[in-house]
Amino acid sequence: MKRGALPLNALRAFEATARLGRMTDAAEALGVTYSAVSRQIRGLEAQLGVALFEGPRNRLKPSREALVLLEPLTEAFDGIEEAVNRVIQDRRSTIDVSCSGTLMMRWLIPRLLGFQRAHPEIEVRLTANDGPVEFRRQRLDAAIRVGRPPWELPSAITLFEEQVGPVARPDLVRAVAGPADLTVLPRLHTRTRLSAWPDWSAAAGLSLPPGGQEYEHFYFMLEAATAGLGVAIAPRVLVQDDLDSGRLAAPFGFVDSGLAYVLLLPQDARPEVRVFGTWLRDAAGAVSLPVAGAAI
């Protein structure tokens, strides 16, 4: 079939249905009705002379012929989408950056004013996410992640090594003389890093009993600590501003966790994305992260 005769709308309907698994989901993704998707696929099947799906409507299974079409179609539509987005983004100098919600609220956003003043022609749009990075699929220009090196992506810029330690409101730890005294204080946990207290206790040579209050998100746990509800194990970069302002205290300093915060960029990153990367690296370099207080 020649390019000029390709039924592009029908191919889009088929690709979305095969990728998402249901015509209803495909219709929502394409912004059309269910009947429009169904009609397009029936027409495509008639034009190709093959059945593209098998099974009931709510559990469609692509046929063998459909699988031959699906992968190259998805790659083609991804390429078209990326090219169009790149034209739009190049015109308005907008970059999309992804990082964890806690890092975004407690470190990145408070420093973005400096970037805006230095580069008013570049708009930074933030998305809260700390999962795997797929630049093309997620429409991302850059991502900040925390993990254990090495990183698979070739363009990974280390921002800072992570250091962790117990933090609490100053009046709560004023009478605490040593790490062992933490057993008398309420301990705060987060579901996103349940090993934080055991890991720190092992590094400190302590054996702390189980127990304490658990929070769903890191940000909630840190807010509980600043409210005086207990003591939390926190990365220093997330509480640096609170330490500087006196809202939190770190009576026993911090130890290396073995993790690192890195900036991930695609290999074909646009110039304005690299400008942001350079600024972010410099901003991270300005963060003082030596071990503080009475070392363990």
Score class of each variant (00 low, 15 high):
K2A: 09
P7T: 10
N9S: 11
F14T: 07
F14W: 05
T17L: 14
L20E: 11
D25C: 08
L30K: 02
G31L: 05
A36Y: 13
V37P: 11
S38V: 10
S38R: 14
R42S: 13
A46P: 00
F53P: 05
L60E: 00
K61F: 01
A66S: 15
V68S: 06
V68T: 15
T74A: 14
F77Y: 14
G79Q: 09
I80N: 02
A83R: 12
A83F: 03
R86F: 04
V87K: 05
Q89M: 04
Q89D: 12
Q89S: 11
S93R: 13
S93Q: 14
M104I: 12
M104T: 15
L113Q: 09
L113V: 15
L113D: 13
Q116Y: 12
E121P: 13
V124T: 12
A128E: 15
R139S: 10
L140N: 06
A143R: 04
P150L: 00
I157A: 02
T158Q: 14
E161M: 10
E162S: 15
E162K: 14
G165Q: 00
P166H: 01
P170T: 14
D171A: 06
L182T: 03
T190W: 02
R191Q: 11
D199N: 02
A203S: 15
A203V: 07
A204W: 00
S207I: 07
P209M: 03
Y215P: 09
Y219C: 03
E223G: 14
E223M: 11
A224F: 14
A224Y: 12
A225P: 11
A227C: 10
A227D: 07
V231W: 01
V237Q: 09
V239L: 00
R247M: 07
L248D: 05
L248N: 06
L248K: 08
V255K: 00
P266I: 01
R270Y: 01
V273Q: 01
G277N: 02
G277F: 04
T278H: 07
L280T: 02
I296L: 15
